[in-house]
Nucleic acid binder design. Structure first.
Lengths: 339, 339
DNA sequence: TTTTTAACCGAAATCGATTTCGTAATTAAC
DNA sequence: GTTAATTACGAAATCGATTTCGGTTAAAAA
């Protein structure tokens, strides 16, 4: 029981294939009579145009590809939701791949997506990605590309980001304004732009408020895990007993730190204030609940997808598309891990 | 700068398109000399077969579709990770759609996937889905379908599940064995099979241990949210002051309940023991940490995908494929919300 | 020298849908 | 009644790759 084709309709009605095709698409050079004839039969046969054939003819797949570092991650799954939502609304399907923060995998996946002829690509790059030939080659092939959250500044394409630096500045400043004088920073890996920017925001906040920036107070988390949060909290308590605040690159690590401080009976925020980044759901639930920066994942996904689809549309019309960088607002969420 | 086609290679080498095609695929009726000639040029031109054309010819897309109720959900994003992992390994891409627990959307999405000609479909059905014509119609079109986690028993296809009933039985039994005598149950909606099964496991455990099953101790959570957990915990404390245990359908709701009990200074587990279901990461981090049932999401995704791909393979070979139901082991995780 | 047999290659059909262009039949115009 | 203008359809080409089936050349066998 294969599905009906134009040929099937044409044969049973004694028409030619082109006429049937045109009838279904309301071409003016088909009589009303045959149009209704064709459309009725198409409905009863439940005719669906063969997507492969249409794709081949129009050379478009109505599909976009997304590469994220990790699906099991509150922020990225929110972004994903936004992307899928917008794409579906515009008649596009979404192929998801995850790089697991690996540059090698990311390259392979870009290749996979190109081979499978997606109409465009959304990407949030892996921590280990420091070369961008695979991305610029996408652009040079005239495949629309939009980066979100973890971007590479040097790649010229549309981007959707938050102002990590400013948000980190605000978070750190809040610690300062509520009395912290010796503030540590658990930062992310050296490479990705947003871990750099958050660090710079932290540093700037210290300097603007006449606190001394001390590199020894900055701990680098390689995989930004719960365990790393615990580990560096422990180490911090050993190294610097008089620390009274920590600004953490991401909530998960902050929660690890909170767990360690709780176990050592350090009072939060009385002894040490902690502020995280990203606003995972979890953060509202642990004890003490975690102050943090809210990152609008769903919105970021929607906007990134919208930008991509617009660019795809322009590409088809051979119009130039100016790359845009959209910066989304973040919110400082105050809970019980800070004053 | 369009990408190279067989025609391009054929023209520059003075060969015909079929010969080039056969050279690339090592047909025996092409001389070694032309083979190397063709292959070399293909490499320098970076030739990639046009996926649309191949799909049309072979009528396969090397793509599978996945419908889940929600991406922003620890369990489902784990399953997703497993699916994508296995699919990529076997050369398949994965299209993700989310039904948002809506039957209407689910139907539309099945249709979308069929129209876009995926080679197979993986689905975890929405809570509101009680009719299955859209699913049986997939099967009758000979498109392989595999259900996971939230399944419909009446649909005849392969399934990957856990034994919800037995796991719930174990969880409830643990409460009983550690001294609970009046155990409430926060269950899920009436429809989905696993919320029914978990309820039945709870009930059976009570009966097997000579405790009286009291329907008034069962609260129905419609959307299984944190807030519902809080709400019903509050209500439970009003309705039945002597309750000493709660078995909750899912961790998120359990965490809501814990939050409410904490606020009311009820001691966990001394006054009331709580046990959840699913083992969200969050559960190990809140205080007190939540005892729960571990559900192997990643493994479930991998196995469901593996089953689907095997069925796709068999379908192409016109072989019959016997539907399998794989039941994955769960684990009782004991933490500090129970003795 | 003739016949047989490989070895190599290409013509043509196919997968479905789309679009351009040409033509027959009908109607309108003069 | 002849010409011009519609109307309504189909032939053919196209999007790339694949596969079957012949056919030509050269080498091997008789």
């Amino acid at each position: 029981m294969k599905s009906a084709t134009l040929k099937d309709i044409a044969n049973t009605l004694g028409l030619s294939v082109p006429t049937v095709s045109k009838a279904l698409k309301d071409y003016p050079d088909v009589s009303q009579k045959t149009k209704t004839l064709v459309k009725d039969l198409a409905k009863t046969l439940n005719y669906q145009p063969n997507a492969f054939a249409v794709s081949l003819r129009k050379s478009e797949s109505k599909t976009i590809g997304v590469i994220i570092p990790e699906t099991v991650h509150h922020f990225f799954s929110s972004v994903l939701k936004g992307i899928i939502h917008k794409a579906e609304e515009k008649g596009y399907l979404v192929i998801i791949l995850q790089s697991n923060e690996s540059y090698t995998l990311e390259k392979k996946q870009i290749d996979l997506l190109l081979r499978s002829k997606v109409d465009g690509i959304l990407i949030s790059i892996a921590n280990s990605t420091s070369e961008f030939k695979h991305l610029t080659s996408v652009i040079s092939k005239d495949i629309p590309l939009v980066m979100f959250d973890k971007i590479a500044k040097v790649v010229s394409c549309s981007k959707v980001i938050i102002n990590d630096r400013e948000a980190a500045y605000r978070a750190t400043t809040h610690l300062i304004k509520t009395g912290c004088r010796k503030i540590a920073h658990f930062r992310g890996p050296l490479m990705p732009q947003n871990s750099i920017d958050r660090f710079l925001g932290y540093k700037k906040a210290l300097e603007d408020h006449e606190l001394i920036y001390d590199p020894k107070l900055v701990y680098i988390c390689e995989d930004m895990s719960f365990d790393e949060g615990k580990k560096y909290a422990k180490q911090l308590l050993n190294d610097h007993k008089d620390v009274d605040g920590i600004f953490v690159n991401t909530d998960l690590v902050a929660i690890g730190a909170i767990t360690e401080l709780n176990e050592q009976n350090i009072k939060i925020p009385e002894d040490i204030s902690i502020i995280g980044f990203s606003n995972w759901f979890m953060s509202s639930v642990i004890s003490p609940s975690l102050s943090t920066i809210d990152q609008p994942g769903f919105k970021m996904g929607k906007i990134a997808c919208k930008l991509l689809l617009k660019q795809i549309k322009n590409e088809r019309k051979k119009q130039v598309f100016e790359h845009k960088t959209v910066e989304l607002k973040t919110k400082l969420i105050l809970r019980n891990s800070t004053f």
